[in-house]
Amino acid sequence: MILYLTALASLLLTALSLGPSFAHVLEAPPRLTVWSPELWREATVFNGQFELFARIGGPLDVAAILMAGLLTCLLARERPAFWFALTGTCLLALGLMAWFTVVAPANAVLASWTPGPIPADFASIRLRWETGHMVVAAAKLLAFASISMAVLAPRLPARHT
């Protein structure tokens, strides 16, 4: 029963973590091609639109990694499920690393912006922020697929030599 509950929790946490990241991907096309720089900056930086993404999304990301790691441990003797679970765990960790290395530096720049003229580095920061979220979403989507495969994979006991 613990395996099934862990698998369920892993899938739910991964799906909840993927949700906000996928929302960023869905928002990106108009934000990159239609929105004026002023609208993008106003919506992204000054009005707290993404505050809950950080407050709830960050802990969800960590919880998803931990639960997928636990699932991986519980599937250690079951092939091929173990490899799918391990891959999913690694992809979730990779997504979080991508957030810290691509999105967080852009967020630090955004935090320094003030109302007034559009900063000279606007286009590069916006592109980094938007594409960074796309990379994170891709890693999480692949992680969800891999963890799903771990849950659905036939249980083949490891061979003992």
Rank of each mutant, 00 (worst) to 15 (best):
A63S: 09
N47P: 04
P154R: 08
S36H: 05
P37V: 02
L52K: 15
S36E: 14
T44L: 02
A93H: 02
T14V: 08
L96R: 05
T161Y: 14
F22N: 02
G57N: 07
Y4I: 06
T161H: 13
W40M: 01
W113E: 06
E27K: 09
R41S: 11
A138Y: 11
L70P: 10
N107W: 00
I65Y: 00
G95R: 01
S112N: 13
P80I: 02
S17E: 08
R155K: 11
W35E: 14
A139D: 07
S10Y: 01
L71K: 00
R41I: 12
M149C: 15
P37G: 03
A120L: 12
M134K: 07
R128A: 11
C73P: 06
C73V: 15
S17R: 04
P105R: 00
L39R: 10
G116S: 08
V136E: 10
H24W: 13
L3W: 10
Y4F: 11
E51N: 14
H160D: 04
Y4W: 13
H160V: 13
A9F: 04
T6H: 02
S10R: 01
L8F: 10
P20M: 13
T44V: 11
A63W: 00
F122V: 13
E38W: 02
A64Q: 01
R128I: 14
L94H: 02
F144T: 02
A106W: 00
V25N: 05
P37H: 00
A54C: 09
E130A: 07
G132P: 12
P157T: 05
A7K: 04
F53P: 05
I2V: 14
C90K: 05
G69L: 04
A68L: 06
G48K: 06
